[in-house]
Amino acid sequence: MPDYTNRFKKSLKEGRANIGLWISLPTAFTTEICATAEFDWMLLDGEHTPTDPLTIMSQLQACAAYNTQAVARPPIGETYMIKQLLDLGVQNLLIPMVDTPEQAKELVRAVRYPPHGIRGVGYGSARVSRWDSRKDYVKGANEEVCLLVQVETATGLGNIDAICAVDGVDGVFLGPSDISAALGHLGNPGHPEVVAEIERCIAIVLKHGKAAGILTPDRNLAKRYLELGCTFVAVGADARILALGARELRAAFPS
């Protein structure tokens, strides 16, 4: 029987740094290409891409043969979307636009079976239980899930201390692009005011004993956030790698 231990969640609890890659191309083919690099984690993005649950399932299958952990992001933290992803076998969820502790508490309930939550029970016909071959799945299901929430709006930033205090939230991801917009620096996540706010939030997340995460293609900033204690840091995105590589190659042969 395969080992279903959530290695990503375990690593975060142990405080180890995990370097990630953003996957925005909605196909298992390029996901598997990226998986060969064996980043510690890869974010399957359903918020800003046309990626849907069936695509995420194929991406999970593409990742399975490699030493990388998948984290899935739905477009919004709706209970039915979370249920679908969990039943597909997603162990790690990143929920965008979490603004209040009440919202965070509802997300915790959404990833847990009763009596501790409201997750619907349908594992017998789902991929997560290997179609009922995992007879003990429900016994440890609640503990298998790693719930990460994104704080990225002015409201969320104001409530970050209370959000971090919610039991069942495993980590907080700080969305630099939206934070820069919230602070009046749209398109400039490296602005000193944005960086200072992110650093303030990292300290609050760590104070609560939660994992702090972020995405930045700026290598110096990525190293800075790792030094400050972030334990899940995405350092690039597949679409950006492809675009920059293609343009660099073309520029080498001007016509």
Rank of each mutant, 00 (worst) to 15 (best):
S24P: 12
N142I: 06
F8Q: 09
E32W: 11
L157T: 00
E144G: 01
S58P: 00
A162D: 11
D99L: 07
L94I: 09
M42H: 01
L244I: 07
Q150E: 05
D40N: 06
G229A: 11
V138N: 10
V166T: 08
R200C: 07
I23Q: 13
A35Y: 12
E193D: 15
V138C: 06
N6M: 07
D99S: 08
T68I: 06
A104K: 06
F232K: 02
S129P: 11
G236W: 14
I19R: 14
P189L: 12
L86N: 10
V71G: 02
A196M: 14
Q150G: 00
W22F: 11
Y80H: 15
G158L: 04
N188K: 12
R73M: 13
A252I: 07
I118V: 04
I160P: 03
L12F: 09
L93G: 01
Y113N: 00
P101V: 13
A203M: 09
Q91M: 09
D161T: 02
S11R: 09
V98G: 00
A64W: 05
V166W: 03
A104T: 04
S11Y: 05
A181F: 09
L107N: 05
L85D: 14
K9M: 11
A64D: 04
Q150N: 02
E47A: 05
R112E: 01
Y137P: 08
M81H: 13
V172A: 00
K13D: 11
G229C: 12
V108E: 08
V108P: 05
G120V: 07
T49G: 06
V138S: 05
P96V: 07
A62I: 10
P53V: 12
D45A: 09
K105G: 09
D40C: 03
L44D: 01
D87H: 14
E102W: 05
T36H: 06
L44C: 05
D178R: 02
I179E: 09
G236D: 13
A239H: 14
N6F: 08
A196R: 15
